[in-house]
Structure formats: structure tokens, C-alpha cells
Write a protein that binds this DNA or RNA. Sequence first.
DNA 1: GGTGAAAGCACCGAGTT
DNA 2: AACTCGGTGCTTTCACC
Lengths: 159, 159
Amino acid sequence: MGKIKLDDTDHKILNMLIENTRTPFTDIAKKLLISAGTVHVRVKKMEEAGIITGSSLSLDYKKLGYMFIAYVGIYLKKTSQTQFVINRIGEIPNVTVASITTGKYNVFCKLRAKNTDHAKGIIFKIDDIEGVQRTETMISLEESINDKKRLMHSIFDEM
Amino acid sequence: MGKIKLDDTDHKILNMLIENTRTPFTDIAKKLLISAGTVHVRVKKMEEAGIITGSSLSLDYKKLGYMFIAYVGIYLKKTSQTQFVINRIGEIPNVTVASITTGKYNVFCKLRAKNTDHAKGIIFKIDDIEGVQRTETMISLEESINDKKRLMHSIFDEM
DNA sequence: GGTGAAAGCACCGAGTT
DNA sequence: AACTCGGTGCTTTCACC
């Protein structure tokens, strides 16, 4: 987990792997005019440095019957209960992200559900957590995801 | 892109691939007591059915110098401008997700930035989009991500 | 830090049950 | 549908630059 300085070749490797984790190292090597062994060594280094933390599948949740996305803003009774509430929320598998925030809400989270009824049940679970004063739900009608690739390009441009 | 009915074996394959996209099919085959060829055929079917849409790297953005996460709630002047605003937001690479929502805000998005100054610039860009009336920013002090695996388990349990 | 070759595996399609 | 098997190609290591 030591420090590491990424160069342009590393950026290019990351950009290719972000688009498709299973891109063969031989393909990357050909494109970057280096050997497959070098690609392998560089990827391994980035894994060891903790920059690459893993890889995961992109799934179509709608096809799995999960049509519903909602954001829930949470007001707490006391901010000292934040960690407790975050832990309880973490136990609900349908909550995909939870953040401690400053601003309007104390805690903010996102959930996935099959339908409105299912979502209602999950939101009620959040409401029932000790320390939660009130929640505000925003239903996502449509989500557009700005792909990782563009973010990465901008990160590397600014480095 | 035809219909497909996933069975328990498919769920187990997905659960293993979600943890690590590069898990060799031979390993999956051993664990599930089926042949590697079968794993291959099933994964291919799920790809063709559009359930698996791709794969991507998990990165430590903090190590890349992006320490800052914020959520921005947007009020529009008229909802008829929603798509226009979503498109403009999509052009900002630092915005990682944007949603059209019902509830408190018309549009809701999440952004990644290097620091507060950098974030300020991005938020000002959003404020400047034609049709945006006002924004409310929530700074994420700490983000806990409920891993995909747990969500998937719950999806499969409920099927 | 990079290379290139070689050994070890994985992938994937064809043919079979 | 799932299996086996073989050709092809990918990964990974290592001696050398």
C-alpha cells in the first residue's frame, strides 16, 4: 500500500480497464506499444498501491426487477447518533449508498427497490431507526450516469 | 436481448463475478460443481440478455487526489427545461450521477472534486446553466457504500 | 523499468450424451 | 442443457537488457 506516482501509460491502462475490466492485457499492450508483461506489472503495482481496489460487474437492475430508485434525506434528533444511524442503515441491503452530510440533511442515502410498495417498506425501516427524526424522499424518475471514463479523463488531464 | 429466467446457479455465478470480475470460470465451476463450459455458456447468455452490461474497475478516488464528494439539489424555473439541464450537467465530467426527481428537487446530482475550491467551480457551473433557479449543496463528510454483493443477495432472495 | 519467450491456464466452440 | 476435449490465445514469470 505504498505511495506511487502514475504516469501517462498508467492512465491509459486505467482508461482501458475502466471501459472493460476484462480487456486482455495483450490488447492493451498492442495499443500502447509495450509488452503484455509490462501491463501486468503496472496493474499489479496499482493494485498493491490500493488505487485499483477491485472490479465489479455492471448490471441492468431493471431487468432484475428493480425498477425503483429513491434518494432519502434524513434529519437526526442529535448528530451524536450519526454513526449509530449509519450502521443501522448499512444493515438494509437495498440501501446502496449512505453519506454523512453537511447542509440540509444529516445523513443522505440512496436505495433500490422493486416497486413503490417495496420502497415504502424500506423507507419505513429507515424512519423507525432510533435517532431518526424525519426523512424526505425523492423519487428518481430517470437516472443518467456520467460514465466513469469521462471522470477519469478529467482527473488525468488535471494531474 | 431476449427474456431469460435466472436460476440459483446463475445467481451464484453473478455473486462471484460481482466480487471479482476476473474470477476464472474454472474456479467458479469448481465451487459450483459444474463444468467451466457451463459457466461460460451461462455468462454469455446473461450478457446477451442484457443483464450483465459490462464490467468496471473500482478505484480509490482519494488516492487519485479526489477527496471531495458533494450532492447538489437543483430547483428549475420550469420543469419543461429538465432535459436541457440534464444534458448540460452531463457535459460536466465531475458530475458522476444526475437524476430527474420528484420531491424536494427537480434534478439531483452527485459530484467528485479535488477540494472545496474545485467543487465551488463545478457548482457555479451548474448554477450558471440556463433554467436553473437555485441549487442546494450537501457536502459528504464520509461515504459508506453498501456493497453490491449484499444488494444482489437480497435481490436473489426475493426472487 | 522494460522485454520476449516459454510454461501454465483459461477461454470458447464443436461435437456428444 | 450440460459435458468433454482440443485449439487458440491470454497471463504470468523469469532471465536478460
